[in-house]
């Protein structure tokens, strides 16, 4: 059973046990426009909340995607190296950015649920 959380920075975090998959929301990809490059992290990289984990590049600009919680990156979405536009076409699916092992699951309590996130972007 997984649960999905959201951040004020327009990321989603799908949690199963102590691991999570992270991506950006549909709203975020619409704001960014067509992505042409995603700078992916190395597996094993340890991140703190607010650290830049990934940089997504549109035709026009580079934008940071932050780690929503503390943890260790266990996998980056290698498919994005050849097809960064997956983030545009399937932001909540095949366009996921990275998977991480959570350092402290209690940090999830500070994140938004789907209803609160919908309210944020309304």
């Amino acid at each position: 059973m997984s649960k999905t959380y959201f951040t004020q920075d327009h990321e989603w975090i799908r949690v199963e046990g102590d691991t999570a998959t992270v991506g950006i929301t549909n709203y975020a990809q619409e704001q960014l426009g067509d992505l042409v490059f995603v700078e992916l992290p190395e597996a094993g990289k340890v991140v703190k909340t607010g650290d830049t984990a990934v940089v997504v590049e549109s035709v026009k600009a580079a934008s940071d995607v932050y780690a929503p919680v503390d943890g260790e990156i266990v996998e980056a979405n290698a498919a994005l190296s050849s097809d960064p536009a997956l983030v545009n076409s399937a932001p909540a699916g095949d366009g996921w950015l990275w998977k991480m092992k959570l350092a402290d699951t209690s940090q999830l309590d500070g994140l938004l649920d789907a209803a609160a996130y919908e309210k944020l972007i309304a």
């Binding site: 426009g33 067509d34 042409v36 035709v59």
Partner: peptide, 12 residues
């Protein structure tokens, strides 16, 4: 206007 609905790639 920065982009229209088709987006920068298609517009270009």
């Amino acid at each position: 206007p920065l982009t229209y609905p088709p987006g920068v790639l298609k517009e270009h």
